[in-house]
Write a protein that binds this DNA or RNA. Structure first.
Lengths: 162, 162
DNA sequence: ACGAACGTTAACGCAAACGTCATGGTTTTC
DNA sequence: GAAAACCATGACGTTTGCGTTAACGTTCGT
């Protein structure tokens, strides 16, 4: 069952695990490692994950599976990113502008690095895709030669970054 | 020093490691795990890696770092791929056509799977890149607002697959 | 109000992918 | 021909990222 708390809907760990396609163990592990802030709890101690929490978990999966970062790296990144929400939260009190700017700059750098990495990987993938398409053509040629076979066409490759 | 053996140039393990940006340990490990065929040796037992060997190592790195496969998976893939070179080698003797066709079909399937995975990952990356670009814009907006700063433009995203 | 389903912490286990010696042979260089 | 640089094998160690089990508390459906 999905829970409610004020206006928001919360998931307990089983549903959250299902939603994110991770295990409960993994969620607890991420929390233990500091990648997830301790979620709110029910009176009995059951964890309740907010929509934000779920999003963050998705973000972790992306960084891990898609870009191949270690959990330690991801932790650093998320901490750097949190600067935005943190600053918004304490925006008026303690208006130490210089330090805030510095932290935003750091977050910006993180983002730039991630974008650069994505671009690099996408280029390499495009390259690799081209090679695989060639190889596929060779296989198809052989199959046609030996067994007069119908071979499905290769879908178009994707454009690469400059 | 680079070695020669007939017409080809061979690298011993130190140079090979440097070239591929792996460690000697890793190369021996890959060999031990059956991902690399035992390379030729010098009289004293030193390993000599051919250009083909180096290429194969690069292939392994790609599959690991770019697509995130485990070494076990990679081993299977490489074995399936080897079908082509194997068939070429023994092409006329033992002309068991049916079996050969089947093995080529298997290799073809491997290739198709890899292409599909690449396309999927590229789509996800494009999506993620877009989000990062948005985030970057927000950072830039904040920096401009607080410190009247010059911010470099974001290079264009790459095209996604259909 | 009671059993089924779900959750909690703590602790140990484990496979993958190497790192790091130790010990001893080989090749190159001067 | 001897030191310096390089390599081989073997064995044990390490880190990461969870899996699994145990022992026990909570929530829910009826």
């Amino acid at each position: 069952m999905t829970h409610e708390r004020g206006a928001e809907a919360y998931l307990q760990i089983g549903d959250a695990a299902e939603r994110t396609e991770l295990t409960q163990r993994t969620l607890r592990y991420y929390e233990e490692k500091g990648l997830l802030k301790p979620p709110t709890r029910m009176d009995g101690g059951f964890r309740l994950y907010s929509a934000e929490d779920i999003e963050r978990i998705g973000r972790i999966k992306q960084l891990k599976d898609l870009l191949g970062f270690s959990l330690a790296d991801i932790k650093e990144m998320l901490e750097a990113e949190d600067v935005r929400s943190q600053i918004k939260a304490e925006w008026d009190k303690d208006a130490d502008a210089a330090e805030k700017a510095e932290r935003i700059r750091a977050a910006r750098q993180m983002t730039l690095k991630q974008i650069a990495l994505i671009d690099q990987k996408m280029r390499q993938m495009a390259e690799m895709r081209a090679l695989l398409a060639e190889r596929l053509a060779k296989h198809d040629a052989l199959l046609l030669q030996w067994t007069g076979e119908p071979t499905s066409p290769v879908s178009e490759p994707v454009g690469a970054a400059s």
